[in-house]
Amino acid sequence: MVRVLINVPKTVRRDEPFEVRLLISHPMESGQRRDTLGLAIPREIIDRLDCTLDGEAVIHMSLFPAISANPYLSFSAVAQRSGTMTITFSGDRGLTQVESVPITVV
């Protein structure tokens, strides 16, 4: 489990784009570094991230080691009715995690 902060507006307007901001607590170990013994540190990154709103896709991302540690990602979404936004991400060492946050349309 990794810690994820999802920041969305408390309420959003129908059909009006709103900002989604994610901050994921993850080392994003690039696989390029070596430890003090000179051995390569294995890659450990988040390489896929999907955001959906009530099952409909918002954005799909493929991420690479060039994304900084503790990735911050901000993108925009639109809602037609209140629902649940789901963030799914997966990566090395069998990481798969699903987070969700309610979206309230006024």
């Binding site: 409909e56 896709a57 918002v58 954005i59 991302m61 925009s76």
Partner: peptide, 9 residues
Amino acid sequence: AHFQFGPRA
């Protein structure tokens, strides 16, 4: 990175 947008973007 690669980004692909869906209908709710």
